[in-house]
């Protein structure tokens, strides 16, 4: 049993090592944009995650493996979804919640039924809504008003070369490490090489979000500009790369991964349109985690329903 847990730890190291490599770039950008507040937020969150993991493992009489990077990754993800100037106790609480309530009771980062980072962020978003969604101004563009806030109030913006570059590089008000679209595109390429299967959920998620944004626009400008704003606002792209592809909650089969992503995208965009939170993607991920077994059954039934019809068609065409 000990060897099994060791091999599980090595598997965890392999998977979360990839995520850690991808997380380096958003971290570097957040430090570049926001300086010391970003460093402080990252540091306290990571240290809290580590301490909670260490002492939590002792409390449940489980051997602590430093190589299990799941709590480390979850802590960094939580920090990147926070605004840079947030009081330190909020990311500390989020990291402590994700590790002690989600990760440790269910036996580790690979067994958790919910994505720990999403749960931690959702917890503090409910408790400290004002602090979590109040952003420091970006370096140049739009002051302290985030794209999510603009969309929430039905605002629009005219796209030109300058502001599109700002949006693509994350140089706007928002969570400190989730704005740079170029970095997430690079992360997707990395995932395409290393873990291709996981990207099915991302594809489903982004596809559902794009269609929803085009059909039900929130901005009063053009639909295309509104769709670009939707994709660039908040933590949507970040979630599509890091939260949706989290192995603990990702379904096993390809069709289920796609259904999981689509379901999450629809819920996320519906919550954006109708809900009270500026960035509800973490709640959507948690809901998709909860509905994941049901989605598996549903997709299987749909496939079972479609397959005999295909067979009948093939038989009739042969006849």
């Amino acid at each position: 049993m000990a060897s099994e847990s060791k091999s599980s730890s090595l598997k965890s190291l392999n998977i979360f090592g990839d995520y850690l490599i991808m997380l380096v770039f958003p971290c570097a950008l957040s430090v570049w944009y926001y300086g010391m507040p970003a460093v402080r937020t990252l540091a306290v969150t990571v240290v809290t995650g580590f301490i909670c993991d260490f002492f939590g493992s002792i409390l449940v009489y489980k051997k602590f493996y430093a190589a299990d990077l799941s709590s480390f990754c979850a802590s960094i993800m939580i920090a990147l979804m926070m605004p840079a100037g947030i009081p330190a106790y909020i990311p500390v609480l989020a990291a402590a919640f994700s590790v002690t309530v989600i990760k440790i009771p269910f036996g580790g980062g690979m067994q958790a039924p919910f994505v720990p980072a999403a749960a931690g962020f959702a917890f503090v978003a409910v408790c400290f809504k004002d602090e979590v969604f109040t952003y420091l101004p970006g370096r140049e563009y739009m002051g302290g008003v985030s794209l999510g806030s603009t969309l929430m109030h039905g605002g629009a913006m005219r796209m030109n070369g300058s502001n599109i570059l700002d949006i693509l590089t994350g140089n706007i008000a928002g969570p400190m490490g989730t704005g740079c679209i170029i970095v997430f595109a690079a992360c997707m390429i990395y995932l395409l090489v290393r873990r291709r299967e996981a990207l099915l959920a991302t594809a489903g998620f982004l596809g559902a979000c794009i269609i929803f944004a085009l059909v039900f626009p929130r901005s009063n400008g053009s639909r295309l500009a509104g769709m670009i704003m939707e994709l660039s606002s908040g933590s949507l792209m970040f979630a599509s790369v890091f939260l949706l592809t989290d192995y603990s909650a990702l379904p096993a089969y390809r069709r289920d991964k796609l259904a999981y992503g689509i379901f999450c995208g629809i819920i996320c965009m519906a919550m954006r349109k109708l809900g009270a939170f500026e960035e509800p993607v973490c709640f959507a991920v948690l809901l998709a985690n909860a509905f994941s077994p049901l989605l598996d059954i549903l997709t299987k039934r749909i496939m079972d329903f479609i397959a005999p019809r295909k067979q009948r068609r093939e038989v009739s065409s042969v006849e």
Partner: peptide, 8 residues
């Protein structure tokens, strides 16, 4: 026992 996987 100690060797059992930790679970709720």
């Amino acid at each position: 026992s100690d060797d059992e996987p930790e679970a709720v």
